[in-house]
Design a protein around this nucleic acid. Sequence first.
DNA 1: CTCTTTCATTGACACCCATCAATGTATCAG
DNA 2: CTGATACATTGATGGGTGTCAATGAAAGAG
Lengths: 126, 126
Amino acid sequence: MKELRVLEQPCCAPGAPPLAKGSARALAERFKALSDPARVSIVNRIAGAGEVCTCQLTAPLGLSQPTVSHHLRVLKEAGLIEVARRRGTWTFYRLVPEAMEQLAFAIGGGPVPEGALVTRERAVAS
Amino acid sequence: MKELRVLEQPCCAPGAPPLAKGSARALAERFKALSDPARVSIVNRIAGAGEVCTCQLTAPLGLSQPTVSHHLRVLKEAGLIEVARRRGTWTFYRLVPEAMEQLAFAIGGGPVPEGALVTRERAVAS
DNA sequence: CTCTTTCATTGACACCCATCAATGTATCAG
DNA sequence: CTGATACATTGATGGGTGTCAATGAAAGAG
């Protein structure tokens, strides 16, 4: 599918070096996945619960099942969430913590939290 | 215009509490401002230079002046940038660091950097 | 005042997106 | 096999968005 390369330095914080065109596009793509209130809420609920299935999202969001499924697809293709497990007809999604951390790091949100050592440019699955 | 309230806790990091509908909309609005490669590049260049005028952006972005002006307006209305000063016919823009920090904090990007103490919910100009 | 430069706004166009109803697919219970 | 449940996909539709040419507005040079 696609790749997002981990930036060596924050790109959108004071003092940042110029950004390559490809990096700008990759970042914008991930921000776009968070540019809808429904998807922000979905990410929020998944983050809070650890794992969530589609049927647990339609009611609190007030959206139809196809619409929720659509948003989940967008988030998945952006690499922000992934399928945790399938149990019967249920599909459980979970966060991809590294993706969120990378976004926070890109806009200058302090050092990347534990574990996510950034050396040069590391390709990350999505 | 509008307001973005500072969250008490990260909303999109593991263990986050449920998010109010208004907060989700406010966050999505700011992420949407960063959902275009041109605007990511603009923010990046402003961050790197401190201050930048419109005419310094058209060439490197490969966009017409009206288009750049449009993107600057979107970023300004999202509260991510602001007019630093007007010198003759030049208009210089600068970042609003608190806005970026708040975004980074929201998605769990570590503690808010220096100065931006978050108590409960503080209204912030935009 | 007149001309030039810089920026913002308007109007138009093509394209993208969020949403839902309808349909398809897969799994389990009986 | 039959029916029910959870989810994904397709198709249609209304609204939003990025882009530029053309125009307007403001400030300085001469």
